[in-house]
């Protein structure tokens, strides 16, 4: 483990904790932004510069701005929201399930390291041009399906935003 990984992993986990424990939605969104930045730095470390750029520009730049916009839109000054579920059993059950999932995944993936051998990376691995040629050679159908999905989401969002729904 190197220092770069440790710094950004701690940053991501700390900001993730802040995201799910912050009282209001807006500080929570800022915590999520920090998670995105930390993950973007880790992607750079993993030879994925294009993913790192898209992480910042799409996630932090588009998706999170949309979320913050909706947070601003939906603030009701008179409403004082409880932080977590009022029912204590919900809280305990949720925390237990989450901790169980973390433990299960951490134990279950323990042997993966032995199964996967570190391959030597080819020249220009992660170069945007290589990803682009993969998109238009091997994954063309998936690419088209994703564009149809985005079109459907666009139409659905506009329909839902009409006045009389």
């Amino acid at each position: 483990m190197d220092l770069y990984f440790i710094v950004f992993a701690i940053m991501a986990v700390g900001a993730g904790l802040f995201t799910i424990t912050a009282k209001d939605a807006l500080p929570s969104a800022l915590g999520l932004l920090t998670v995105f930045i930390a993950l973007s730095a880790l992607y750079l470390h993993l030879h994925a510069p294009l993913i790192a750029i898209f992480q910042v520009s799409i996630y932090a730049g588009a998706i999170l701005v949309l979320v913050v916009f909706v947070i601003m839109l939906l603030i009701t000054p008179d409403e004082e929201l409880e932080t977590s579920q009022k029912n204590m059993s919900y809280r305990i059950l949720g925390a237990f399930l989450g901790a169980y999932l973390i433990a299960l995944l951490a134990i279950g993936t323990k042997g993966v390291k032995d199964l996967i051998h570190q391959q030597t990376l080819p020249d220009g691995f992660g170069h945007p041009g290589m990803i682009g040629s993969l998109f238009f050679k091997e994954y063309l159908l998936h690419f088209e399906v994703a564009s149809v999905l985005l079109l459907v989401a666009l139409v659905a969002a506009i329909y839902l935003a009409k006045k009389n729904i």
């Binding site: 993730g16 995201t19 799910i20 949720g94 989450g98 901790a99 999932l101 995944l105």
Partner: peptide
Amino acid sequence: CILFGLGTI
């Protein structure tokens, strides 16, 4: 896994 679990919680 830790991040996924935090999201679940």
